[in-house]
Design a protein around this nucleic acid. Structure first.
Lengths: 131, 131
DNA sequence: ATATCTGTTATATTTGTAGTATAACACAAA
DNA sequence: TTTGTGTTATACTACAAATATAACAGATAT
């Protein structure tokens, strides 16, 4: 999987990494049990420090999106992803609320907002598949 | 308007302030031209430094959500809010994308996600009105 | 066995942001 | 002239992000 980083972004590198891996799993480009690069090789590839990658992996592990074996390396969680937990539901709503509020402030209708969401949703879940 | 801050949150205070003022405007609790507390009085009220409030106000001014007069103080922008600009559209999508990706990863259907969004949207735009 | 490749842990350092603490300036109203 | 605005400047502490090395622990290949 190709990782694209924006070093000028105010989003931390480890967060950008997490987001891209999450989107990779969500889109199906990364499948259950599939291997991810080692912390060192990925760090080397994208030109960042080992610890930056390690932080992203550690957080993804905490959320049970990936598994880490001491010698086998890092793999997408083979048992599948966790579902909609109460904790995630709270996190999700606290992430959405400010975005929705600002959109309302700018006069964006519910219908338009839902359409934007739907567009992004389908864009992520229906990637160009080289079948 | 009552401001509620979470000093334990990893969201910066000035961001929490911005979010609450934005939601206040979005909900109609804060109306066009309505006065906001001075930087000093608000800072004193919520127990933070003058500069923290000033930073929130400065950013809200940059987005044209409020107006700042040197002596009259701070008011909600009297000319109304800016609409859906291209810049905001990009910002909005970059905020939504990671949330949507993670929800897809956790198996949340488009319909369920849209329902969550709709719930938050109506919750913000239909506050308890003491008419 | 012994290199080698994993993740992991431990320090230390640099850089930038968040937040605080004072102080002063510019301007306008009382 | 005093007072209350926003504004600006400076300095400081605290913390997070990121880097730089180094070493440790475990498993695999040679």
């Amino acid at each position: 999987m190709i990782i694209q980083l924006d070093m000028q972004s105010d989003t931390p590198i480890y967060t950008q990494l997490m987001n891209q891996i999450i989107e990779g799993i969500a889109s199906g480009k990364l499948k259950r049990g599939e291997s991810l690069p080692s912390v060192r090789s990925l760090a080397s590839d994208i030109g960042v420090n080992l610890h930056t990658v390690n932080k992203a992996y550690t957080l993804l592990k905490q959320e049970e999106y990936i598994q880490v074996h001491r010698q086998k390396g890092v793999v997408v969680h083979p048992d599948g992803m966790p579902g909609l937990t109460p904790e995630y539901s709270i996190k999700q709503q606290s992430q959405l609320r400010p975005v929705i509020a600002e959109s309302i402030l700018r006069g964006i209708s519910l219908e338009d907002f839902l359409q934007t969401v739907e567009h992004i949703y389908t864009d992520i879940s229906s990637p160009e598949r080289g079948l």
